[in-house]
Design a protein around this nucleic acid. Structure first.
Length: 164
DNA sequence: CACGATGCTTGAA
DNA sequence: TTCAAGCATCGTG
């Protein structure tokens, strides 16, 4: 990774403590604080505590989870992931707020029609929850599919988006 | 490096 | 509902 300064913060929300990592180029990582990847990041990047670039994301995320305001777009900067994974994640960013896509549709969009299953695994490793809207991707059958942090969470987030 | 196992899928049986 | 095909990763040896 490039020589860049990273900043992190853990914020309290009504779905638990969320860890946010940023650098000048954008938001780099968001996940529940107990996600095992957080430890690795802290160890390898030793970021400083306290966001300085995209501080508004804290309030936005908290308010969003309270159904008080819509998600705001922030610059996204992927610091990890294979070419395949990043193409999947970038594709997710194209799904409009409040709308839904499917695993196979995403596979089709990235010109890898048959990699549907792989798309699922890649989405499962989404490094920036909510702002990279992996929750907007469901199974072609109409069922919700899966979610790294539990179906309960996916359902909740979708529900919030529907109502705000 | 080479396999085998795994995962937020799908379509067919 | 169960199963196998299909694909990128990851862990093992």
């Amino acid at each position: 990774m490039p020589n860049q300064s990273f900043y992190f913060e853990k914020i309290k929300t009504n779905i638990g403590i969320i860890y946010i990592l940023e650098c000048q180029k954008g938001i780099c990582f968001i996940a529940p604080a107990n996600d095992p990847r957080v430890k690795k990041i802290q160890l390898e990047l030793s970021p400083q505590e306290g966001l300085i670039y995209y501080t508004k994301i804290k309030k936005n995320l908290i308010q969003f989870l309270k159904k008080k305001e819509k998600l705001i777009k922030f610059p996204i900067y992927f610091i990890l992931g294979s070419v395949f994974q990043i193409s999947v994640w970038k594709q997710l960013l194209k799904i409009p707020y409040g709308s839904i896509s499917t695993y196979s549709l995403v596979a089709e969009k990235i010109q890898n029609l048959k990699a549907v299953r792989a798309v699922g695994t890649a989405i499962g490793k989404n490094p920036i929850m909510i702002y990279v809207p992996c929750h907007r991707v469901i199974a072609k059958s109409g069922s919700l599919g899966g979610y790294a942090y539990g179906m309960l969470m996916k359902h909740k987030i979708l529900d919030i988006e529907k109502s705000v």
